[in-house]
Design a protein around this nucleic acid. Structure first.
Length: 281
DNA sequence: CGGCTTTGACCGGCGC
DNA sequence: GCGCCGGTCAAAGCCG
C-alpha cells in the first residue's frame, strides 16, 4: 500500500500529476501525455481500445483516493462516444452547475429528459471514472457526502448496485457502487461528474485512505484536502464535459495478488471491453 | 423533525 | 412493437 503514494514526491509542480489521486483532483482535461506521464503507462499498451485524447474528458476529483491505474477504459455509453451529440443545443457543459442540484427549480429530471428527447437530444453523460477497491465496506469514504437514491440488482451477480448522489447543493456528481461477484472483496465504484464545491467541512473519518492505506492516511490526506480546496478556489470556471470517457483505476495497498485480476460483469461490463475481460476466464 | 435508506414503479435506450 | 435492462424517482419507513 505504501508504495502507491511513492510517486508523490519531488517538486510542487509535479504534485498535480504524481498520482492518480492528484490527477483526479485536477479539473484539467487530461490528455494522453498527461495521463501517461502521471500514471507511468501508455494507454496504448493495454489490450483494450484506448481512449483518445479527445474523449479522455473530464475526471472527477477525489483527493482522498489513492489509486493506481489498471487501464483507461472507453465507456460503452453511446452518447459520450459521439462528440457530436454533446455539442451545442443544450445549455452547455455547465448546465448542471448552474441549474442547481440537477435540474432547474420546479423541473424534474423526467421532465427535462422528455423535453430533451422531444427535440431529438440525447441526455449527456458526464465523464466517468471507475475504481476497484479491496474493501469490506461498500461505501468508501472519499471526503464527500452521498445520498443513496437507488439500488438495482446486477445481472449475473448476487450483489446489487447502489446509486448515490452528492448531497451538496448544485452538485450533480453521482457514483455507483457494486461488488464484484467474482471477487466479493472488491468494491467497484464509478464516479460520474465533477464536484464544484469544497469537501464538506463536516467530513470525518474513517476515510478511504485511512482504511486502505493505514498509517499513510492522515498526513497525506490532510494535504490532499488542503490542496484540493485551494484548487477548487482557483478552478470555478466551466469545464468541458463533452466527449467523456471512463477511466478505471485500482486501489492497491500492498496486496499485489489482486492486481488486474478483478473482472466484473456488472458495472465493469459496461466499461471494460470484452476483449479485456476474456483473458481472465 | 430532518436526513437518509429502501424499494417498487417508472422511463428511456437499445436490440431483436 | 416488444421486451429487456440500466438508471432514476419518490413515497414510505427508519434513525438519531
Amino acid at each position: 500500500m505504501d508504495d502507491q503514494v511513492d510517486h508523490k514526491n519531488t517538486s510542487l509542480d509535479e504534485v498535480i500529476f504524481t498520482s492518480v489521486a492528484d490527477c483526479l483532483q485536477s479539473s484539467l482535461v487530461m490528455d494522453y501525455n498527461s495521463l501517461e506521464k502521471a500514471f507511468k503507462f501508455s494507454p496504448y499498451n493495454y489490450p483494450c481500445q484506448p481512449i483518445s485524447p479527445s474523449n479522455m474528458g473530464q475526471i472527477v476529483n477525489y483527493p482522498y483516493l489513492n489509486l493506481t491505474p489498471i487501464s483507461p477504459m472507453v465507456s460503452s455509453s453511446s452518447n459520450e462516444a459521439d462528440p457530436k451529440e454533446n455539442v451545442g443545443d443544450k445549455s452547455g457543459p455547465m448546465e448542471n452547475h448552474n441549474d442547481g442540484d440537477q435540474h432547474g427549480v420546479g423541473e424534474t429530471s423526467k421532465q427535462l429528459t422528455k423535453q430533451g428527447k422531444g427535440k431529438g437530444e440525447k441526455k449527456e453523460r458526464e465523464a466517468r471514472v471507475a475504481f476497484m477497491t479491496k474493501s469490506e465496506v461498500d461505501q468508501l469514504e472519499d471526503g464527500y457526502r452521498w445520498r443513496k437514491y437507488g439500488q438495482k440488482a446486477v445481472k449475473n451477480s448476487p450483489y446489487p448496485r447502489s446509486y448515490y448522489r452528492c448531497t451538496a447543493q448544485k452538485c450533480n456528481v453521482k457514483k455507483r457502487v457494486e461488488r464484484s461477484f467474482q471477487d466479493p472483496s472488491i468494491v467497484i465504484t464509478t464516479y460520474e461528474g465533477k464536484h464544484y464545491h469544497p469537501i464538506p467541512s463536516t467530513f470525518r473519518g474513517p476515510m478511504v485512505g485511512e482504511h486502505l492505506f493505514g498509517h499513510h492516511g492522515s498526513g497525506i490526506l490532510h494535504s490532499f484536502k488542503r490542496y484540493h480546496q485551494q484548487f477548487l478556489m482557483k478552478n470555478q470556471h466551466p469545464v468541458n464535459y463533452q466527449s467523456a470517457g471512463t477511466v478505471t483505476y485500482q486501489q492497491s495497498h500492498g496486496d499485489s495478488s489482486n492486481h488486474q485480476q478483478v473482472v466484473d460483469c456488472g458495472l465493469l461490463q459496461d466499461i471494460v471491453p470484452s476483449k479485456f475481460l476474456k483473458h481472465e476466464s
